[in-house]
Amino acid sequence: MDIRFEEVGYTYQPGTPFQSRALHDINLTIKDSSFTAIVGHTGSGKSTVLQHLNALKKPTSGQVTIGDRVITNFSENKGLKSLRKKVGIVFQFPEAQLFEETVGKDIAFGPKNFGLSEEEGLEKARELLPLVGLDESFMERSPFDLSGGQMRRVAIAGVLALEPEVLVLDEPTAGLDPQGRKEIMDMFYTLYKEQGLTVVLVTHQMDDVATYADHMIVLEKGTVMKEGHPRELFKEAGWLSSMQLGVPSTVRFAHELEEKFEWIFDPLPLTTDELAQQMKDKLASKAGEGL
């Protein structure tokens, strides 16, 4: 399911003295089965874009096409539910959305709203718990007794239970320890790879963008500045820092090596593995020359 933005603009509180323009002239396409990263400085409009992806907000100008539904300023609120089932959003600090008595019921809450029975929902919860790294013993526990990281996992399972075609993640690893971070990101990546899920990731972690994403959109002051493959965009470290963004640690290290030893990395290494492999090749050829 493709999601397409055409000339989208959004203004908060239009017609009041508190009005502020959050988005303007946004054109972008999120392709089916892609892993798109949306990056940008704080206040660049990332979260507002995100809320357009399942019609929580309607554009004040332009149109958003989600699958075969077109959302404009004048679209009715009827029938948005089926849309929301297809596009699941994991909001920032999703643990704040837990409310049921047990973990199982909370995960089953979403599916129940979309017409499944309580039993089917609980069954789904039982299947999902191992996927997010918890075991079945959590089913009957209260979500409020869990640790922050465990609550986060339950909340994510609650969104996955909707079986969305598009999964939108708003800084899913903010505030987690490095281990939990990696586990959760790997889990999303597995879903993307194995189930052909479309993933949209909003993040400040450039390392995550480099490791997982195949498309990258840079937002600044409410509009799209650039988009493309992370490998292309990370070449322009200077431009990125003018957008108050950084490059992944691998790219930074590669740039330092380029300066110091006049090495040329082509293609630009994005992951540690790629970097290590290229360095190994270069050292090997150097050693060959030396002999």
Binding site: Q51, N54, L56, K81, R84, K85, V87, G88, I89, F91, Q92, P94, A96, Q97, F109, G110, N113, F114, G158, V159, L162
Partner: peptide
């Protein structure tokens, strides 16, 4: 925020 999160879960 919570309203949005629950809306996304079908409320």
């Amino acid at each position: 925020k919570i309203m949005n999160a629950q809306r996304a879960r079908g409320i």
